[in-house]
Design a protein around this nucleic acid. Structure first.
Lengths: 185, 185
DNA sequence: TGTACATCAGTGAACGCGCGTTCACTGATGTAC
DNA sequence: TGTACATCAGTGAACGCGCGTTCACTGATGTAC
């Protein structure tokens, strides 16, 4: 059952996309190659025509998901409001790859970790551009600090089995970031 | 080879302690029951005399590790300086259980998640007490915001394969948290 | 206090299941003429 | 443009390894007398 070149490219994309959602939702280890293939509408045997190994899929999936993730195009507060929304918290499968997979990626292949680091640098640079203020060092500090707070808050909000606490973490971190940090110095 | 009651209690403690270090270092899935028992100086067969299952061990280990973790006894800045130190970043096995295991614990048993949530509440309350300011709501906001930033920064610093970026994240987040947040309002 | 024996914590071989990976096969694609 | 055939993407059965879990056994503990 050979398929056309276009169909094969489309299948490849479907595999990476399905893996991206499943990995973010359940983690690398809990998702099987067969599950990913099934979610992509294929059978598990064809997997090795697309990837060298599950580790290879993981690395490629991380790169793809990070490339897809929307960067901060609005102002810092607007971005934080979207990032720290209940909608984002509840959409782990479609949300920020860093928040969903950072801890596990540390222990993956060097390629996977390098892709995450590169995305982290891009994110900090992009946030710095959206941060108000004239002093570049000060804006970089605010970019790093607020990115750390956003990632930490989403993780803690998802962790909490108490919905009120979860909402509070999002709300208060949003307010804390927007509190005119730079204005204090 | 029956052992004395004291020895058995000591063995139990050794298992939980070894599991705590191994889980924080490599994650729940990558650590085998046999490895934990070996690290505790025992053989794998005896495991089920101490725990009902690996999941049971995970829940008990999380509770134990969280109970052991030192809370913020100093002022907020002093605590942040220790938490965001290079030493803590490099000691994943002995460091903060939340930073090491939060993402994976979300998908574990309800007991494990509940233990993490309880620890999160305790941590926020304790941080609030160490936060300067008179307005309680404002201090709680600072406690939540800075805890999110601390957890996020340690995770991002550990993720980065670029040592300079990693150091910078710790340093700038420390400075950002200490920037006299409360004084701005 | 000393002795006999029941208990039971720990041992290590074995089991069974699940998952990553392989492979012989199928049949649609796409190229050569 | 139409036809014959080589290619090769996808299929699904099978393999083998590793890990959680079980179990018959061992021998030290600790209790009954």
């Amino acid at each position: 059952m050979k398929v056309s070149r276009e169909q094969m490219a489309e299948n490849h994309r479907a595999i990476v996309e399905a893996a991206g959602r499943l990995f973010r939702e359940r983690g690398f280890d809990a998702v099987t190659v067969a599950e990913v293939m099934k979610a992509a509408g294929l059978t598990h045997g064809g997997f090795y025509g697309h990837f060298r190994s599950k580790d290879d899929l993981i690395a490629k999936t991380i790169e793809h998901a990070l490339a897809q993730a929307p960067g901060p195009s609005a102002d810092l507060d607007g971005y934080a409001a979207r990032y720290l929304s209940e909608g984002h918290r509840d959409d782990r499968a479609g949300g920020c790859p860093t928040a969903a997979l950072a801890t596990e990626t540390m222990r993956q292949s060097p390629e996977a970790r390098a892709a995450m680091t590169a995305a982290l640098k891009r994110q900090i640079d992009a946030l710095q551009l959206q941060t108000p203020g004239t002093d570049a060092a000060e804006r970089r500090q605010a970019a790093i600090g607020s990115w750390a707070a956003m990632v930490g808050a989403i993780i803690l909000a998802r962790l909490s089995d108490d919905p009120q606490l979860s909402d509070e973490i999002l709300r208060e971190t949003r307010a804390w970031i927007g509190e005119g940090r730079g204005a204090a110095t």
